[in-house]
């Protein structure tokens, strides 16, 4: 109904009225969620994957991209406040509240001994994995989505104990079950001698 805005600065009016701004933000958020939902839903929408291909959830942490078997993934969430734990290895960043449960948060870079540059943005997402009776939140800067990878496309890398290999897209495929069975993950397991 408006043909000519005239000399009124509508942008400023909107801003001062505040509501439109919020609405636009909301719309942007909705769009982001819709895209993400679409991304997550993608593999299901695809033609049935061949039996031997694996579904990987891939995420970015620092300069690396990792892939974990979706069967071990319990969920993805934004990192809430982390309480640091004294007396645990540096790869455990602390614990956080996930729907009333306390989940230990792990930064794979400390575990793999990857140097960490001071970063503007700390990892803001968390992939919760579960295996061998352990449930741990792996920090990620970004969760990219799920993709099907055939085992042939995963090229083994030598001397990398917890990596099944690299994909063509240079995603490091983690052997999560092995990693979660590492004794180093259990604090006090080697020195539980008591008093």
């Amino acid at each position: 109904m408006l043909q000519k805005p005239g000399s009124i600065d509508w942008e400023a009016v909107w801003k001062s009225l505040n509501w439109d701004d919020a609405q636009r933000q909301q719309a942007a958020e909705r769009e982001r969620l819709r895209q993400r939902a679409h991304q997550y839903a993608a593999p299901a929408a695809q033609a049935p994957t061949p039996e031997d291909s694996r579904s990987l959830l891939t995420f970015t942490l620092g300069h690396e991209r990792y892939g974990v078997d979706v069967m071990l993934v319990r969920g993805v969430r934004a990192v809430a406040k982390i309480a640091r734990l004294p007396g645990v290895p540096a790869f455990y960043r602390g614990v956080t509240n996930v729907r009333g449960r306390i989940i230990t948060v792990m930064d794979l870079r400390y575990f793999f001994d990857i140097s960490i540059e001071p970063e503007a943005l700390p990892p803001g997402e968390m992939v919760i994995v579960r295996s061998n009776d352990l449930e741990i939140g792996l920090l990620a800067h970004q969760v990219n989505g799920i993709s099907a990878v055939s085992p042939a496309a995963i090229r083994p890398v030598e001397h990398m104990p917890y990596m099944a290999g690299l994909t063509d897209e240079r995603v490091i495929v983690l052997q999560m079950a092995w990693l979660l069975a590492d004794e180093r993950l259990i604090v006090g397991s080697a020195t539980s001698s008591g008093q």
Binding site: L85, P86, G87, V88, Y92, V95, G100, R101, I102, I103, T104, D133, L134, E135, I136, L185, I186, V187, G188, S189, S192
Partner: peptide, 12 residues
């Protein structure tokens, strides 16, 4: 709340 098995034995 219980802590995970991985850290429940941490000192202090």
């Amino acid at each position: 709340k219980p802590l995970g098995r991985e850290v429940e034995n941490a000192h202090y």
